[in-house]
Amino acid sequence: DSWHDTVDGIELELHGADEELLKLAKELLKRGVSEEEVRRIIEELLK
């Protein structure tokens, strides 16, 4: 799946992010949310 590559990229960027955020990112990508949107959501949550 192409979203796996996206998640791997996000995981590299979010090496400090907790497991729950990564699960959320994967779930959003699986549901068709764009990579940009996922990054934006996670950045908001990390604030």
Results as ranks from 00 to 15, higher is better:
residue 35 E to K: 15
residue 45 L to M: 11
residue 31 R to T: 07
residue 31 R to K: 10
residue 22 L to C: 04
residue 19 E to M: 12
residue 27 E to L: 15
residue 38 V to L: 02
residue 1 D to L: 05
residue 18 D to N: 14
residue 8 D to C: 06
residue 14 L to D: 04
residue 19 E to I: 11
residue 46 L to Y: 06
residue 33 V to K: 07
residue 21 L to E: 01
residue 29 L to G: 01
residue 37 E to T: 07
residue 13 E to S: 03
residue 31 R to Q: 08
residue 17 A to N: 06
residue 5 D to G: 11
residue 43 E to S: 13
residue 24 L to E: 01
residue 33 V to T: 05
residue 38 V to I: 07
residue 24 L to T: 03
residue 45 L to K: 05
residue 5 D to M: 03
residue 45 L to C: 04
residue 27 E to I: 14
residue 29 L to D: 00
residue 43 E to T: 14
residue 38 V to D: 00
residue 46 L to Q: 06
residue 37 E to A: 09
residue 43 E to C: 06
residue 17 A to G: 09
residue 28 L to D: 00
residue 45 L to G: 02
residue 2 S to D: 10
residue 23 K to V: 06
residue 31 R to S: 09
residue 20 E to N: 12
residue 18 D to G: 13
residue 25 A to M: 07
residue 8 D to G: 12
residue 46 L to E: 02
residue 35 E to V: 15
residue 22 L to A: 04
residue 28 L to N: 00
residue 9 G to P: 12
residue 24 L to K: 03
residue 30 K to Y: 09
residue 10 I to V: 08
residue 12 L to K: 09
residue 1 D to P: 08
residue 19 E to W: 14
residue 28 L to M: 07
residue 33 V to R: 07
residue 46 L to G: 03
residue 38 V to A: 02
residue 40 R to Y: 07
residue 24 L to H: 04
residue 15 H to Y: 03
residue 12 L to S: 08
residue 41 I to F: 08
residue 29 L to E: 01
residue 39 R to V: 06
residue 19 E to Y: 13
residue 12 L to A: 05
residue 1 D to G: 12
residue 19 E to Q: 13
residue 40 R to P: 00
residue 11 E to W: 07
residue 19 E to K: 10
residue 1 D to Y: 00
residue 11 E to N: 13
residue 29 L to S: 01
residue 13 E to N: 05
residue 47 K to H: 09
residue 43 E to R: 15
residue 32 G to I: 01
residue 39 R to Q: 04
residue 32 G to W: 02
residue 41 I to R: 02
residue 27 E to V: 13
residue 5 D to V: 10
residue 23 K to S: 05
residue 43 E to I: 14
residue 40 R to L: 07
residue 36 E to M: 14
residue 36 E to W: 15
residue 20 E to I: 12
residue 43 E to F: 15
residue 8 D to L: 13
residue 44 E to S: 12
residue 31 R to F: 05
residue 18 D to A: 10
residue 37 E to R: 06
residue 38 V to E: 00
residue 26 K to N: 05
residue 31 R to D: 03
residue 10 I to Q: 08
residue 30 K to P: 00
residue 36 E to I: 11
residue 31 R to H: 06
residue 36 E to Q: 13
residue 7 V to K: 07
residue 39 R to M: 08
residue 33 V to S: 03
residue 5 D to I: 05
residue 2 S to N: 14
residue 17 A to V: 15
residue 9 G to Y: 12
residue 4 H to S: 09
residue 44 E to A: 14
residue 18 D to K: 07
residue 22 L to Q: 08
residue 26 K to L: 11
residue 43 E to W: 15
residue 38 V to Q: 00
residue 1 D to Q: 12
residue 36 E to R: 08
residue 5 D to W: 03
residue 4 H to N: 13
residue 22 L to S: 04
residue 24 L to R: 04
residue 8 D to W: 02
residue 37 E to Y: 09
residue 15 H to A: 12
residue 24 L to S: 01
residue 5 D to R: 01
residue 19 E to D: 13
residue 19 E to H: 14
residue 12 L to R: 04
residue 15 H to E: 11
residue 1 D to F: 01
residue 16 G to Q: 04
residue 4 H to M: 10
residue 25 A to Q: 02
residue 13 E to V: 05
residue 9 G to K: 13
residue 39 R to G: 03
residue 16 G to D: 06
residue 27 E to R: 15
residue 8 D to R: 04
residue 37 E to W: 11
residue 19 E to G: 11
residue 6 T to D: 10
residue 5 D to E: 08
residue 14 L to F: 14
residue 10 I to E: 04
residue 6 T to M: 12
residue 40 R to V: 04
residue 46 L to P: 01
residue 34 S to N: 08
residue 20 E to G: 12
residue 46 L to I: 14
residue 36 E to L: 14
residue 4 H to F: 12
residue 1 D to W: 00
residue 29 L to M: 06
residue 12 L to N: 08
residue 18 D to L: 08
residue 2 S to T: 10
residue 8 D to S: 13
residue 5 D to N: 09
residue 45 L to Y: 12
residue 2 S to E: 12
residue 10 I to A: 07
residue 16 G to Y: 12
residue 32 G to S: 01
residue 32 G to L: 02
residue 46 L to T: 05
residue 26 K to F: 10
residue 13 E to I: 06
